[in-house]
Design a protein around this nucleic acid. Sequence first.
DNA 1: TAATGGTAGGGGAGGAAAAAGTCTACATAT
DNA 2: TAGTGATATGTAGACTTATTCCTCCCCTAC
Length: 880
Amino acid sequence: MEMQIIDVDYVLVNDSPVIRIFGKTMAGESVCAFYEGYYPYFYAEGGDVPEILKDEPQVRSVKKVKRKVVMGYQEPREMWKITITNPAKTPEIREFLRSRGLTVYEADILFKYRFMSDFDLSGFGWIELKDFSGISTETVRCQKTVQVREFSPVKKDDHAPLRKVAFDIECVAGVAGTVPEARRDPVILISMVFSPEYKGKKKVVFSTRSGKGVTAFESEKEMLQGFIDTIIDYDPDVITGYNVNGFDIPYIIERLEKNDIRPVFGRCGQKAVYSKKLMSRHSTSIVGRVIVDSFEIVKKDFSLTRYTLDNVCDKLLGERKVSVKHSEMEKLWKGSEKEYERLVSYSAQDSVLAMNLVEKLMLMDKYIALSRVSGTLLNDTLSSGETSRIENYLLREFNKEGFVFPSKPDQQEVARRDELRRTELKGGFVLEPEKGLHSNVVVLDFKSMYPSIIRTYNICPTTLILGNEHIEGEIETPSGARFVPKSVREGIIPKILERMMKKRSAAKKKYAKEKDTARKAVYYAEQWAFKIMANAFYGHLGYSRARIYDLNIANAVTSSGRETIQKTKELIEREFGYSVVYGDTDSVMVKIPEEDMEKVKEIGNALCKRINETLPGVMELEFEKVFKRFLPLTKKRYVAWKFEPEGEGWKESIEMKGIETVRRDWCELVGDSIREVIEIILKKNDVKAATKYFKNIMNKLVRGEIDLQKLVITKTMTKIPKNYAGTQPHIELVKKIQARNPAEAPGIGDRISYVIVKGTGLVSKRTEDPSYVMENGLQVDSKYYIENQLLPPLERIFGALNISKSELLGNGKQMGIFEAIMNGNGGGTGVKEIPISEMTGFLCKKCGAHYKRPPLLGACSCGGSLVFSSKKGAADFVIA
DNA sequence: TAATGGTAGGGGAGGAAAAAGTCTACATAT
DNA sequence: TAGTGATATGTAGACTTATTCCTCCCCTAC
């Protein structure tokens, strides 16, 4: 029997661990396989372990073994392998040994991962049960339960069919104007959506009030019991919903407890659903099932201004939903049949959308691929970061080669590392961009630069030469770190990376060949996962909480990168005479004096060929794309008219990096206008037309013709308001909302939307909630939007093009860009007279000199005549 | 039970420090 | 020629008002 692994855990039977592997067969059957006789173990050195542990009843065996330690090129050492009975006792024995001054290895590996690592099993990987027999048990709720004696991992690309349920709960706050509290306020509605259908139904709505399309219950308790029964009966592999980790699940757990029902709806009858908030993150575990919170995934995978279900569905699915405000909830719940129907359909809709997000956006694919590559269980892949994946993978590889894996650093060690980190790890090198609008720039990239460097220079903790020892053929990186050559010992990480890069190309090939769309998606996700994993190793080396942390090694990687890009630039300029106009970390952009795209590409390829001759190991520079026009603004900010090879021809598009159009903390109006201006400039090279377009926007803004939504600025609240050192616009608004309506106050990690309204004083004090502005008819500060939002980015673009304000107007340098545009081309809207209150002095028309008072001559010292000046512009008249 | 990959870099907003005006009182020159 | 008032100009110090610089914060490029 073959099955795909969904979850693994263990239980104690007579104080001995029994591993449970939860899986799904190709036929869609849920299976739980029990495995006995596997015990936890770890290593220690630096003391007489048999003697120290002779009275410890947990210990099953202590054996002398030879193992290598990871850090530094060293010979194997003798140490003790300690096997115990109960996995939960590991920390106790570990700390006891540490207190006696011993060094302990691998005593902080979760038992399920110890097991999976030893048997080479992965989350969502396949396992073949070779010798097994059916058993009956009350403890596990699966279609099939077996005792397995022999098994092995199998390589298989297909996915078993999954059962998914999406759910959403509604509740009403017991006190008006507050947030519902699980301690106090009951659940009134639960909607569920099934995929595939459950007993011929796509969805159900449970409630304590009867109505059309509703399954009614006598009490909350009965409804909750109904919910649990349905889950258990449907037996889903995946439980999803929008923000279920943050809201629905913790809420429902608390309500279940309030109603004296144990929150047990996993595939194990004993273990309760566990949900805990850690810092600002939530994590939930349900035995045998996977929690897929579409909110959390969308937030990670898509860059959006706001993550309300409303906005997410609109932007990602193109589906608009009817929304019900929190404050309306109670009215609908207690209202007429019609109103209640609206609430019911609203709740059902939320579940439908959560399911649609998962299925249509294929949110799980990437994470399944990451699980299969790294070995972590899907639920952990979803709820944890890069570290757990990297370390899970490394543990296996180091073990295979006879190494013991280091422990997690303790708090003190982390603090020590953090202290040094800021100054001690240098990153990539960014070339100073050459100013101006360039034509025909070829972009060349180093293929997987950091992984390639690690492979080329055999960079690994296991090959690092410690102290002053010298080894024949040693490799020295620019940072000064030295590594033994491959011939002496091949590093584990270089070996892993070589394999990953090979596997990635294999997956890419399969992807290209495959016709079946489902399989194609699997291969795409697989190659993506290999790329992500390969790139994560470098970051891990410099991460202060990593088991394998060494700044010498991390710096060895980055210093080699810096040297490589600099040498590349020099060679291109020296040998070919081309100018490298920009480059960042692993890329160079070279200006080619050729108009023909094919020619530019050809030269680009020739450059790569020449550079590659000089590069060591697997380092490789490759042609990436051509910029027909390239306008760098600063480092990390540029605009380009891009041409990428596609099939026989070229695919063109405008590429914008780092500028306001791609940033979420600028309003839509800025993004739209700047995008348009760039388009006009790059493709038509018509500054006048761009200026005219912009002038029109500003006029509309002053006249109040711009939709408020286009003026909304959004920013993330990264900590609670009182922890902010200074005054921040978005935080000031949060404080206002907290005072006005605590129920709707945002939390950590939420994106805050605001507009700037008219008034005096700090911008921060003039932030307002867009809907509040609408409801109360407040006026937005058009001056702010012109001077602080629209103009600065435009000015930067013109600046990069070397178009000065005076050029736009052909006038004095005191002129701001506002006047330059308003008065410059076509005129018509120029300021004719200014109120005396706004007058700031006198301006010479000829030389642009500014006077606070009129000079006695009545004219400028240069002889030019004077006009009145103000911040908004100059005029011939002032009015009282 | 339990979590959190890296550095480089731009740019807005606020706030402190330094610099530039302004005002006042008084001195000096015409 | 000395004394006088009106006016202009200069100067130092107190006070006020822009500038400049730095930090915090957010977000992006790689």
